[in-house]
Design a protein around this nucleic acid. Structure first.
Lengths: 197, 197
DNA sequence: CGATGGCTTGATGGCCTTCAAATATGGTGG
DNA sequence: CCACCATATTTGAAGGCCATCAAGCCATCG
């Protein structure tokens, strides 16, 4: 089995160059954790005490509305981070639930360790600045898509942007992510496959 | 007239504590610019060469679809930053347009100066990390709202979250921001005012 | 196997868009 | 400062997209 930290550093090195000393320093702030499929990583109402790097597997974060419908906020797979930011930063009760779509391995970073790491390793401050900066650009695009595209356009765009991950997700989760009903995705698929026999 | 930099530093100080030396250092990276109402700050296809701090006034960034409809991505008023991130970071052609809703005063920060400032003033790296982090939490909420709320809920939420700014915006811009037609907002307003005579 | 969860298909209806036209508002130039 | 004209808002009518409800099928897995 590959060392989970190899996966972490491989992703960090894409944005900043860490020395071996930095890496050894940083490792101490993380705590590995395994999650089985369907297991919660966070439940609404709890405080989100850490952000999680996904070394392996796939998780989702979502909001339950008053009718019990799931509205997916984010999928996180290898190389992505996941948390309820608002709760993590401000210590407020989480509005989101998070759970594992597949068996997963996480690296947990507590708020204390996050703050300490950023203070002690300036390159990590930079890493997160760049990470967040890029995430903002992504979310901008998603927001515009949510507000301006039809169901069919949204689904096609999702498949185009996330061709690999879409294969690991059941359709009803993609539907929830796009703000559509599972039935609508089913009908769109049928329509598309009819167009190209 | 108040110094535009006073406004900038007042906002930065909410997140990090700058020394007077830092402030004098930082000032040199910015260039003030005034925009009249309706004037473009950026046009689609150009490269977004700088991010802008809004010292005074109000701007919007938006995307034009193939039918010429405006889909507003962001409003930026005193204390906010505005740019086409993707274009700014990667030097790609901007997908967004930006223009002034009111006469405005900006502080421009070019890509070179941005990079240099972040390298030379670690506290600014921290400032932007925190700024982006908070923006992500905001966008998360907006995305969930876009995908799960009715038109009426979205409008009510907007008024609740941005009571002051909503007064400075024509309704059709709020509609565009929420992914709704101007007519829908008009009808919602009528309905609400009928409920409380 | 039985049961559970996911996918499909049909029928119905509601929310919101679109189109159109009338009215109100407000910025701008004379 | 006023008159004008472009722009914003309102209102009505028609229709389409997509959700909801319901039922049946299919695959997986304990």
């Amino acid at each position: 089995m590959e060392n989970v930290f190899d996966i972490l550093f491989a992703h960090i090195q894409k944005k900043v160059s860490l020395t071996v000393e930095d890496q050894q320093h940083i490792m101490r702030f993380f705590k590995p954790k395994k999650l089985r499929r369907r297991q919660y990583a966070l439940q609404q109402g709890e405080v989100c005490t850490h952000i999680s790097f996904v070394a392996q597997g796939l998780l989702k974060s979502y909001m339950l509305d008053e009718k019990g419908n799931e509205h997916i906020n984010l999928f996180a797979w290898e190389g992505w981070w996941i948390s309820d930011f608002e709760s993590f930063i401000f210590g407020s009760p989480a509005k989101l639930d998070m759970d594992a779509v597949e068996d997963s391995t996480l690296l947990l970073l507590s708020k204390d360790n996050y703050d300490r790491m950023l203070a002690e390793v300036p390159l990590m401050e930079r890493y997160f600045r760049i990470l967040y900066q890029n995430s903002l650009a992504t979310k901008d695009r998603r927001l515009i898509s949510a507000n301006s595209h039809t169901a069919e356009e949204k689904y096609a765009l999702f498949l185009e942007v996330y061709p690999v991950i879409s294969q690991r997700l059941p359709q009803h989760l993609i539907a929830s992510y796009l703000g559509l009903s599972a039935e609508t995705i089913s009908r769109i698929k049928k329509k598309i496959s009819a167009q190209r026999p």
